[in-house]
Design a protein around this nucleic acid. Sequence first.
DNA 1: GTGGTCTAGACCACA
DNA 2: GTGGTCTAGACCACA
Lengths: 126, 126, 126, 126
Amino acid sequence: MIVLDYSDTRPIYEQIVDKFQTYILKGVLKPDTQLMSVRNLAMELSINPNTIQKAYAELERQGFIYTIKGRGNFVRYDRRLLEIKKRELIEKIKDILAEAEELNISKEELLSEAGQKATEGDLGND
Amino acid sequence: MIVLDYSDTRPIYEQIVDKFQTYILKGVLKPDTQLMSVRNLAMELSINPNTIQKAYAELERQGFIYTIKGRGNFVRYDRRLLEIKKRELIEKIKDILAEAEELNISKEELLSEAGQKATEGDLGND
Amino acid sequence: MIVLDYSDTRPIYEQIVDKFQTYILKGVLKPDTQLMSVRNLAMELSINPNTIQKAYAELERQGFIYTIKGRGNFVRYDRRLLEIKKRELIEKIKDILAEAEELNISKEELLSEAGQKATEGDLGND
Amino acid sequence: MIVLDYSDTRPIYEQIVDKFQTYILKGVLKPDTQLMSVRNLAMELSINPNTIQKAYAELERQGFIYTIKGRGNFVRYDRRLLEIKKRELIEKIKDILAEAEELNISKEELLSEAGQKATEGDLGND
DNA sequence: GTGGTCTAGACCACA
DNA sequence: GTGGTCTAGACCACA
């Protein structure tokens, strides 16, 4: 379910946070489902438990999961999370457009090229 | 001309690289203009010369400047650099759109909201 | 495994880069093998960790290794690297031949003399 | 007659040494011809006189020119210089072949590819 | 433990 | 003066 990409420059814990965010937002992980324990997931991914711990802590901070001491971590689905995520994505695009504008790159051209390619399905992740 | 943001999580040398990239791409720094010397810029920014050295080395590697030992660093403007930058921005937007798609967020809505806000000018932080 | 030559005019970090390139291309270092840590190699060679850091960063940039923060550096073998190296060697020979041509030195004679001697095995310094 | 290439990574004085070596070996500069004065050549090339000084000193050390104090620098052509140059070029090729051998790159293939391309006249200098 | 950044300061080649 | 390398050592994020 979780596959790490070591050629990705992002830290491992961040990749894990991202994966869980997506699964929760998409509904693949249903509300109140229990997540794998820190120890088990660490073993499965062959990484340091501290890394999973850090990822779960971050997910809890963001409101994606809740922790019950001694029992484990559970999905806390909240419709507002999707809205927040959407806002984030919009902000990111705005930042990119602002940068383009500063370099006198046509915003329309940029968006149309990005949109076209995106639709064609070659949305590679570097 | 260069202002460091210590609250920025990015390393100092990277901020410097970014600033010069922008100035060169925008044409604020004309081709063959000499950059401030490593030592002088370090003094002006109150940071260590090694940090400037690292930034300049990176800029040279990326083709934004050329270095003549014993003389200094000079702007090497190359139209292709702007094209490369544009490609990068497009890729970034594509990645964001891909993420949106995975979460079933409407691409059109995303782009229109980002575009509108961007036009209204409430973008820049930095 | 790595021996520094202080009489060599090339910088230390470059010698280290070269050695690793060769070991990786020859297959002495297998893909996904972990390299010695920055600190340990620095201690073994009695040089500063920053110098190893610089060498490893360059190797990563060139695609010979990949780095996982907090874990270490690993060999990323890629058949294309050998092809690139071959191209480089060919280019160097071409440059030499061009220089010979300009001085009206017979190319054939040059190559045959170089080839003979090379076969006789009186080549290696280093 | 002398054109500096700032995109060349070699130091300026070395480029100058190379140019003079070639002109002298080719006979473009005849024996006992006087070279431009340090000061004049420096002005013509818009570089520091120290640089010309260093280049001339190196040429004298190698036996390509001789200096008469108060009068100037003069070409000292010596047939043996061409032979020495040839030896140098052979040594360089031998080193490259040795490197190729270590990487199990076929020497014959390398030489034939370098030779072919060289003959076709696309002997670019990087 | 492991890599990445940064400082303070020295020394060298080159111009 | 100008860039390039290197040391000694600190501090941080990540695993």
